[in-house]
Simulated scan of single mutants.
Amino acid sequence: MKSTTITLAAAGSAALLLLTGCSGAGGGTTADGEFAPNGDVRMIVPFSAGGGSDTSGRAIAAGLEADTGVNISVENREGGSGAVGYSHFLAQNGKDNYLLAAETALLALPLTQDVQFSYESFTPIMKLGDDFTLLVVPADSDYDTCVDVVDDAKDNRVVAAVSGATSLDEIVFTLVEDDQDVEFDRVPFESGSEVLASLLGGKVDIASLNPSEVLGQIESGDLKALCAFADERYEFEALADIPTAIEQGIDVSFAQFRGFIAPGEISDDAKEYWIAAGEAFAETEAYDTYIADNLLQPNAVYGDEFVEYLAGNTSDLEKVFAE
């Protein structure tokens, strides 16, 4: 387990957060009577360091810390395709000084594994944006399009790396299999960084990774992107020439969301505090930089709207995992 503390709090902001003598993990109040978390805050990342979830968690923690003046440490609790981190977070029920960097595993795990939680167990705070994936292969691969991969899989063994049984890449490959009536062999890993290493090392044939995880390797010429599993081509210059899978006759588009949640059963004041902090973060240059650097679509929603999004996304995933 790795733990890193982000220290961006401004002294002026910190001075405003004069907490009362409340004990435990419950919130206190500032000098003017407003809610504030009692002490430092911990951001749980349910995957290992170096992947897209880790990048998201650290960016969110830094942005919230800069706005609130509260120290926020980032703790990686990887394992079980995210189940270890989410289960640990479930145990923090009612604690308003815990947050978790959430993504599609929040919805996929309850549908595929015997876990004790669903998105309804927690308090959804903010969805920052949507993260699609690219189908990538080594630069010397014989594949030049996603159709090449599908055609080869009809007669031969094509090995795909996936970052867990409930990950976005697993979902995307399942959708491709269903749409094209093919089957890929899977090799599971714990994170996108491990998937990338296996692909570069020639241990697998294909991978479906977020643009932020592979842009450097694409630009360096170590990898090539065959298609994007998105509704439309990216507008980012570095990705604008990559066709969508839909353009190539593969009717698959699915995004992983990036956002953060709080434990279940926190107070309404705590929920509104974190939503307000998220809204403030979304108006900053730091948020814009995170979205641009990680090549996301900035579709921010908060609170109840985030809950509605999660409910709809769960319905879509139920169809995938029921097949």
Rank of each mutant, 00 (worst) to 15 (best):
V70C: 09
N93G: 07
E120C: 06
A101F: 10
G80H: 05
A105T: 12
T123W: 14
I125E: 04
A62T: 10
D67T: 12
T133N: 07
D130A: 10
T123P: 07
G85R: 04
E65D: 10
L106V: 06
A108G: 08
L64E: 05
I72Q: 03
S73G: 14
S81W: 05
A105P: 00
D131W: 07
K95M: 10
G69E: 11
N71Y: 12
A108V: 05
L109G: 00
T104P: 01
H88V: 10
A102V: 11
D130Q: 11
A108K: 00
Y119P: 01
N93T: 15
A66S: 13
P110D: 09
G80E: 10
A105D: 04
F89R: 01
A101P: 06
N76E: 08
G94P: 00
M126H: 10
K95F: 14
L106G: 01
P124Q: 07
F117Y: 14
S73M: 10
P124S: 13
P124V: 12
L109R: 02
V84I: 12
A83E: 09
A62P: 03
D96A: 15
E120Y: 11
G80T: 13
Q116Y: 12
P110Q: 06
E75H: 15
T104V: 14
K127L: 15
L90Q: 06
S87I: 12
A105W: 04
S81K: 03
A83W: 08
F89E: 02
V74E: 02
A62D: 08
D114M: 12
Y98N: 00
G129H: 13
T68K: 06
P124M: 11
S73Q: 12
Q116C: 05
A105G: 03
F89A: 02
T104N: 00
L90Y: 15
Q113E: 11
K95G: 01
N71D: 14
E103I: 04
H88A: 08
G129V: 14
N97V: 11
L99P: 02
S118C: 13
T68Y: 15
T68Q: 07
S73A: 15
T123G: 03
S121E: 11
E103Q: 04
V70D: 03
T68G: 03
I125R: 03
Q113T: 07
G63V: 09
Q113C: 04
E120M: 10
K127G: 00
T133S: 05
P124C: 12
L100R: 01
L90W: 12
K95L: 08
A101K: 05
T68H: 07
S73W: 05
G80K: 07
A108L: 06
A83Y: 09
F122K: 02
D114K: 15
E120K: 15
D114W: 10
L100E: 03
S73P: 05
Y98R: 01
I72A: 02
G63P: 03
A83H: 08
D67R: 07
L111K: 02
G69C: 12
S87P: 04
T133G: 00
L90A: 10
L111V: 07
D114H: 13
L64A: 02
D114V: 09
F122D: 01
G80Y: 07
F132S: 00
L106P: 01
V70M: 14
S118M: 08
F132N: 00
S81Q: 06
M126Q: 11
A62G: 14
E103Y: 14
G69L: 13
L64C: 02
E120A: 15
L109Y: 05
Q92V: 10
S73F: 01
L128G: 01
G69Y: 14
T112C: 11
P110L: 08
A91F: 13
G85Y: 08
